[in-house]
Amino acid sequence: MYETIYHRPSSIDEAAALFAKNEDGKYLAGGHTLIPVMKSRLAAPSNVIDIGRIPALIGIEAAGGTLMIKAATTYYDIMSSTQVKQSIPAIARLTSMLGDPQVRARGTIGGSIANNDPAADFPAAVLALGATIRTNKRDIAADDFFKGIFTTALQDGELITAVLFPLAAKAGYSKFRHPASRFALTGVFVAQSKGGDVRAVATGASQSGVMRVGEIEKALKANWSAAALDSVKISPDGLLEDIHGTAEYRANLVKVMAQRAVESAE
């Protein structure tokens, strides 16, 4: 790792001020992406601003039809939260399938979304549930947030403070994990909103990152069941192709994971 200067602000405003004042800064929450990439010298920020212990960024609140998870809340706290399990159990389930216990003790929802790794799980939930990403400057709709792999609508220095999920009528998540890395080779989050809208979002599959799958959404809107997807055909166009699987293989996985997600939905 190259040299860096570590800062630990105690408030959101102080964090933003440190970012503005210091050249080449990076926010650090759980650090389970940033520190590995710094160790491999793929990133070398001159200043690291640790937001992981800012009290205003930690916590979970469920009220008025919305589940709010603050940005620096760890995966472990999310998966074991009674409020999460009661309001959107699919989020607790997704979180419990993420990484391993030690990673879940450190990783955060805000970090996952800000990083927007093409195989990350949380972007799928955020987009499928039509969540709102709250920052220190504004609210951003999920539809406008994810801009392609490792790219988001966040401006330089803008900090996610919370994610607001509207409660769903039904939601489910299923993923096919890479046998070694345990990342999603393909994962699909399906959600039926209280208003009856249906969304199906795949992660790990597309070259452009997290994506809605129109064919699946259409079929599920007509008939919310795994069987309704039997005849659906997913195009391999634009899907990832690498040593782990062809685009056709991933296209099939999108359908199978969507079916399992529907079966697990509650």
Binding site: Y6, R8, L28, G31, H32, I35, P36, V48, D50, G52, Y76, P101, Q102, V103, A105, R106
Partner: peptide
């Protein structure tokens, strides 16, 4: 490299001393 920080098991190769 697993150790406990404030009672939780974490991978100490992925924690900066400042944290």
């Amino acid at each position: 490299c697993t150790v406990h920080i404030d009672g939780r098991a974490v991978k100490s190769c992925t924690v900066l001393v400042g944290q």
